[in-house]
């Protein structure tokens, strides 16, 4: 990879300052970023490692909201997010154990890989992304694959998940990468049901609103029997056509409802 200056601040303020450098990028686990840099597809001049910032770590629950520090690893979420079992299970299924020991929720949401798991959980839960400057409602946060509402130099500090009545994540793995070929996160709250789909769309994570309406009326797999997810705009590649992904969306949604 190209060389860069490595900076490891101890506080968010120091990190924000360091990110003012030209072509600086944050590193929050690096489990996606480092392989990209090896391919020389990414060339920061300064890499600001957020791993050393203790205030970004931790899982806490208060008033029905689970707050996860952005620098919390997937392994920690899997172990400590017991208050939100579907989220803990999702975190425990990302990548592999070694990846889960380094990768973080903040890194995943900032990167917004179209096949990543956390975007489905965040969108499906109606989470709020907390940054060093503001709070962003999740429906405003994702803006297409690898694109988010984050400004240059803005750092996610925490993610707040309202804990739903019921939730479940079903991930159908792409056989090689083990990312989601399709992943569906279903959450039922007093306000209704949210269904978030990852892996499938060229635009990244999205909500399947028809299914949400049907499931809000009747939270049972049969409620969406008559629906079919549209294949328009879905990814077609070596591992599946848009039609296949559309079929998986429905199958996994039903399974998530059953398992929730």
């Amino acid at each position: 990879m190209y060389n860069f200056e490595f900076v490891k601040p101890a506080t968010v303020d120091e990190a924000v300052a360091a990110l003012q450098a030209e072509d600086a990028q944050p590193l929050s686990g690096g489990q996606t970023l480092i392989p990209t840099m090896k391919q020389r597809l990414n060339a920061p001049s300064t890499l600001v490692s957020l791993i050393g910032i203790d205030s970004l770590k931790g899982v806490s629950e208060a008033g029905g909201v689970l707050t996860i520090g952005a620098g919390t690893t997937h392994a920690t979420v899997a172990a400590e997010a017991g208050a939100y079992p579907a989220l803990a299970a999702l975190a425990g299924g990302i990548g592999d154990p070694a990846v889960r020991n380094r990768g973080t929720i903040g890194g995943s949401l900032a990167n917004n890989d179209p096949a990543a798991c956390y975007p489905a959980a965040a969108l499906g839960s109606g989470a709020t992304v907390v940054t060093n400057t503001r709070e962003i409602a999740i429906d405003d946060y994702f803006q297409g694959m690898f694109t988010t509402a984050l400004e240059e130099g803005e750092i996610i500090t925490a993610v707040k998940f309202p804990i739903p009545e019921k939730a479940n994540y079903q991930k159908f793995e792409q056989p090689a990468s083990r990312f989601a070929l399709v992943g569906v996160f279903v959450a039922k709250t007093a306000d209704g049901v949210r269904v978030a789909v990852t892996g499938a769309s060229e635009e990244g994570v999205f909500r399947w609103t028809e299914a949400e309406a049907a499931l809000s009326a009747n939270f049972a797999p049969g409620a969406i029997e008559g629906l079919s997810a549209s294949a328009d705009g879905l990814i077609g590649d070596l591992h599946g056509t848009p039609a296949y992904r559309a079929s998986l969306i429905k199958t996994l949604t039903k399974r998530a409802v059953t398992a929730a």
Binding site: K8, Q31, I34, P35, K38, S49, N101, R102
Partner: peptide
Amino acid sequence: DTSQCGACVVHVDGAAVKSCTMFALD
């Protein structure tokens, strides 16, 4: 070089990590 094979797994502060996907300075 895609952080998948795991031949490089070591323990850092007791946790298994892929040493090819972590900077020495970290």
